[in-house]
Amino acid sequence: MAKQGPHTPLWWYGDVAVPLAARLVAPLYGALSGLRRGLYRRGWLRRKQVPVPVIVVGNITAGGTGKTPLTIELVERLREAGWKPGVASRGYGRDEPSTARWITPDLAAGLGGDEPVLIAWKTGVPVRVDKDRVAAAQALLAAGCDVVVCDDGLQHYRLARDIEIEVVDAARRYGNGRMMPAGPLREPVARARECDFRVVNLGQASDEVGDVVSCGFGEWAMRLRIDSARPLNGGRQVPLQSFAGQRVHAVAGIANPQRFFQMLRTRGIGVVPHAFADHHRYQPEDLAFGSELPVLMTEKDAVKCQSFANRWHYAVPLQAELPAAFWVALLDRLGKLARG
Rank of each mutant, 00 (worst) to 15 (best):
T99N: 13
I163F: 08
E115G: 03
G110L: 06
V134I: 08
D151I: 01
D114A: 03
I119H: 08
A120V: 07
L154T: 14
A135F: 00
V149C: 13
G144N: 03
V148Q: 09
D132S: 12
G124N: 11
D151L: 04
A135C: 03
R158C: 00
V134M: 03
H156R: 10
V147H: 05
L141D: 00
D95V: 09
D146V: 11
I119R: 02
P105R: 06
A100N: 13
C150N: 11
E164V: 00
Y157G: 03
I119P: 05
A135D: 02
S98M: 13
D132F: 08
G113Q: 06
A142I: 05
P116N: 00
A108F: 01
A139E: 14
A142C: 04
R128P: 01
D162V: 08
K131P: 10
V134P: 02
T99L: 15
T99A: 15
D95I: 03
D106V: 04
Y157M: 12
A142K: 14
I103M: 10
A139M: 09
I165L: 04
L140Q: 05
D130I: 13
G144A: 00
R161N: 01
A108Q: 04
A143Q: 12
V149Y: 10
W102Y: 10
V148N: 09
V134D: 04
E96K: 13
A139K: 08
A109S: 12
G112A: 04
W121Y: 14
D132M: 10
D95Y: 08
C150T: 09
D151Y: 07
G112K: 04
G124K: 12
E96A: 15
A120C: 09
Q138G: 13
G153E: 00
V125T: 15
H156N: 11
A136W: 02
T104D: 13
R94G: 03
T123K: 11
P116L: 02
G112E: 06
L154K: 14
Q138C: 06
W102C: 07
V117C: 08
D151R: 01
I163H: 11
W102K: 10
C145G: 12
C145F: 08
G144H: 00
V127Q: 02
L154V: 14
P126H: 10
G113F: 03
A160S: 12
L107H: 07
L118T: 08
I165D: 02
L107I: 14
L140C: 06
V129E: 06
E96Y: 12
A108P: 02
V117Q: 09
D162I: 02
L159F: 05
T99F: 11
V148I: 15
S98D: 15
L118I: 07
W102E: 12
D132G: 12
D146W: 12
A100R: 09
A135Q: 03
D146G: 08
V147M: 07
V127F: 05
Y157A: 09
A142P: 11
D95P: 06
A136H: 01
G113N: 07
Q138S: 06
L118N: 02
D151Q: 05
E164R: 02
D162R: 02
D114F: 01
R128S: 05
